[in-house]
Nucleic acid binder design. Structure first.
Lengths: 143, 143
DNA sequence: GTTGAAATTGATAACCCGTCTCAAAAAGAA
DNA sequence: TTCTTTTTGAGACGGGTTATCAATTTCAAC
């Protein structure tokens, strides 16, 4: 699929450097992965079940972890599950979560992101991704 | 008379509001919990084994989750384990987490906190707590 | 202080997510 | 094509957490 040519190239380069092979399954999974902002292995398993009913869950886990090593994905532990974030997807958003009714509001704030970069640099880190969640009461639940 | 009177009060208030009971185990676990900045259930299990060899692991999990509901603790999933953070420990701190070696650096940034308040206010929220985790590579793992 | 309903505990079974195992299949260089 | 190496799929396995349930404890009402 040529619309993911860049990422396919990154993957192939990583495979070449580590004596790994390019397989039909890896191509299929990368293609599906790049269409999303983030996904769990289980979700992908069900999505791809239609295209290839014999694709094993273990293969999906192995491949998503491979993507992490290649720098295409980033694993994040959320609740009991692991989310695999699409690193090439730039529109990162954070969350305001109401502890009263569970409402979730998404937001983006460049100033906060800039300060995060500063903190990271000061500690010798290079940020790959982040997670910011604000818990509180929305206007309706406050009363 | 415990030196953690304030937190004990918060716990008792929460218990009262939810028809829950104050038990020897809950007091013991809260006391041990408040002495640390963050801890896993397993770690606490081993720590308290000396004081009470019959204290069950399930009770510790249940109680730490109770502390989360009472606002005294905050659960953070890292790798395969869950860390329970002591919210009252010298204010709130955030984390820089190395995706290479798992190293965790704690930091505090008033400017970020102020911007968080702004975002919340703009959306009609009052913040109770928050969670900020920056994932990336530390200086050693970058090479 | 006793009583009794309701909540809690401890031991362990069950559960879930993710990894490991291994024989069969596929990739890819010669 | 041949041959070596890697990958795959299916299920077993493992570690962390939660559910189960009988026995115990709490605590409010007597």
């Amino acid at each position: 699929m040529s619309k993911h040519a860049k990422e396919m190239g990154i993957l192939k380069e990583h495979l070449g450097k580590h004596q790994l092979k390019f397989t039909r399954q890896r191509e299929l999974i990368l293609d599906a992965f790049l269409k999303q902002e983030h996904i769990t292995a289980e979700e992908m398993y069900h999505q791809l079940a239609r295209k290839d009913p014999h694709l094993g869950l273990a293969t999906i886990y192995r491949t998503l972890n491979l993507f992490c090593e290649a720098g295409l994905a980033q694993a994040r532990h959320f609740g009991t599950q692991t989310q695999y974030d699409n690193v090439s997807h730039k529109g990162h958003h954070d969350h305001l979560i109401c502890t009263g009714c569970g409402k979730i509001v998404e937001f983006e704030n460049c100033d906060i992101e800039r300060l995060q970069e500063e903190v990271a640099t000061r500690n010798g880190f290079t940020i790959q991704t982040h997670r910011l969640e604000l818990y509180g009461l929305c206007s309706r639940c406050r009363h």
